[in-house]
Design a protein around this nucleic acid. Structure first.
Lengths: 144, 144
DNA sequence: TTAAAAAAGGACAATTTTGTCCGTTATTAT
DNA sequence: ATAATAACGGACAAAATTGTCCTTTTTTAA
């Protein structure tokens, strides 16, 4: 469904959000450990998210990544996915046609639109805050 | 959403079905032309579909690919996707967790399950016959 | 002011996916 | 029988994605 980069991006953002809620900044090393992702690759993705102002990065000792507390419930999964994978998921044709729309549709156009809208709405309606909800109490997990 | 291989597989099967309805067998070259796909790569995918008994292949002059007429409305997109991409789409976790289930879910487990079930049902309910429906009359397209 | 910490960034490497080439095998029509 | 046709199959090549390494820059704390 999503690229690996995107999966790591979502998990990392979620973990950063969780730490930020507790007022903590967290390092790349810690993040990679907690979401079980390759460190250097994760670094690239975090850079991307930082450049897109989804997360904040601070250099130097006691630096790391964080998210402004009042942003955590405003940032939606859709923004993270868009920053990393672009709009492929939202726009592209299910069968890979360059131009596929209501006027010149592929045979599954309507059906795909329905499913994509579904996915899109879900991503647009899911905030990072919601993502963190079950983590502390062991109801949900970010690795394994 | 799907791999390129899968996209070509669906389009090729649909075109073969369309020709089969008219009692015609069709060649790799013709298929690739009509769905605008790389010929040799398409050949691999057709082999895969033939080995999975989704399409029939006939060697030699006047050979080519076809689908038994009475199978065209029985073959569902889900079978084609499964033959090519396996069950990744149906089974895998949205965030890439190895073990992700109701007991030990990722933070979006439930939401992803809903969307995947949606997709799964759509693929299971869409036959090749249905795929061919609008093609002849120019209501739907397989390329561009 | 210096050493250490931590992100940034560039170059490279491995893997997977996508795509190509070409000889082999089977079948058909002449 | 033979030549032509068309799928089969193996090896290879290109491109994209994923992943690693190492140096540079920024910042902090001692």
């Amino acid at each position: 469904m999503f690229s690996k980069a995107c999966e790591y991006g979502i998990k990392a953002s979620t973990y950063i959000a969780l730490q930020s809620i507790e007022g903590k900044r967290t390092s790349l090393r810690d993040i990679a450990k907690k979401i079980d992702s390759p460190e250097a690759f994760t670094a690239k993705i975090l850079q991307l998210l930082a450049r897109n102002q989804i997360i904040d990065s601070v250099k130097g000792p006691s630096g790391g990544f964080q998210i402004e507390k009042d942003q955590i419930d405003k940032i939606k999964l859709s923004e993270i996915v868009y920053a990393i994978d672009g709009d492929n998921i939202y726009v592209g044709c299910g069968l890979g046609l360059k131009e596929c729309n209501a006027l010149k549709p592929c045979p599954v156009h309507e059906k795909f639109v329905a499913i994509r809208d579904n996915l899109k709405k879900m991503l647009e309606n899911t905030s990072l805050y919601e993502m963190t909800a079950g983590l502390e109490v062991g109801l949900t997990y970010l690795k394994r």
